[in-house]
Simulated assay, not measured.
Amino acid sequence: MQYRDLGSTGFSISALGFGAFKIGRNQQIKYSQAYDLPDDTTTERLLNSVLDLGINHIDTAPAYGISEARIGQFLSHRRNEFLLSTKIGETFENGTSTYDFSRDSLQASIERSLRRLKTDVLDVVLIHSNGDDEKILNQTDAIEILQSFKKAGQIRWIGLSGKTHAGATEALNWADILMLEYHLEDRSHAALIQTAAEQGVGVIVKKGLASGHLPAADAISFVLRNPGVSNLVVGGLNLDHIQTNWETAAGVAIQPAA
C-alpha cells in the first residue's frame, strides 16, 4: 500500500517519506559511512525525482544544515505536491548542533523555516527533542508556540519528534503527529504506535533502518507492516536506492490489527 491516512488529518501520505538530512549536513553524523554533500545540480535532480516517484512527504529540520534552504530553492515551484515537515528546538550552524527551547528562539525558528522553505504554510512542525521530552513539554513554551502558529494558519499540524516513551505518551494529549524511532532492533514503541492510531494521531517513523545499519528491504517491510504506522522516513543520496525502497514499500502488506 503506497499511501496511508496520516492520523485524522485527512491527508493521504506516501508510505515512504524522504528524509532530507544528507542534502544539508555531513558533520557529526550517526551514519556508518561518511559522504560528501551533493552539489546544487545533483540536489535539484534528486529532490524532483523523489516527487516524480510518487513520494509526497519530505522531512527536514533546522538541524539538517542547509537542507531547508535547498528544498525551498529547488521545490518551491512544486509546493502543492508534497507534505513538508520540519522541526523546532535544534539548529546546526558552523559545524555545531545546539538546542534552544526559549520562546524567542522557537518563534524565530519557525519564521526562518517559512522563509527558507519559501512557503506560507508548514504542513507539519515537530518539537525536535534533545532527549528530555517531559521537561520540554512541561517547562518550556514549545507546545504553546506551535499551537499559536497553528491557530494563525502558518502550521497545519503539530507534534513531537521525541526520544522517550513517557514523552510520546504525554504528547498524545495535544499532538496531531508523533515521530518515533521503531525498527527491528527497537520495538519499544510498538504499543504506543497502536494507541496513537486508535486516537487518530499520525505516526511517522524515524530511524527505521537504524541509521543505515539494517538491511533496507527487511527494515522497511517490518516497519510498514504495522497498521499504526502512517509513514516511514528514509534518507539517501542514491536515486536507484530510493526507487528500490519505494518499490519495497509499495509491496508491503499491512498486518491485521491485533
Rank of each mutant, 00 (worst) to 15 (best):
T43L: 05
G7S: 04
A219W: 01
I136F: 02
N94G: 03
V229D: 11
V203A: 00
V121T: 12
F149L: 00
R115M: 10
L46R: 08
E170I: 05
K118M: 11
P215L: 08
L192H: 12
I127Q: 11
F18C: 07
T98G: 01
A168L: 11
F222P: 12
Q147A: 02
I145N: 02
L239V: 01
R225I: 03
K135R: 05
A191K: 15
L75R: 02
D176P: 09
G159S: 09
R79I: 06
T119S: 07
T96V: 15
N94W: 00
A142R: 01
Y35Q: 07
V125F: 01
I220E: 05
F21G: 00
A253N: 06
L106K: 12
L117V: 07
N130C: 13
V252F: 12
A196R: 05
N226Q: 15
S76A: 15
R156C: 10
L84Y: 04
N94E: 14
F18E: 09
A175T: 11
A258D: 10
I220V: 13
A217P: 00
L16F: 10
I55N: 00
L117Y: 10
P38L: 12
L37P: 05
A196C: 08
K22N: 01
Y64P: 10
E81R: 14
A166N: 08
D186C: 07
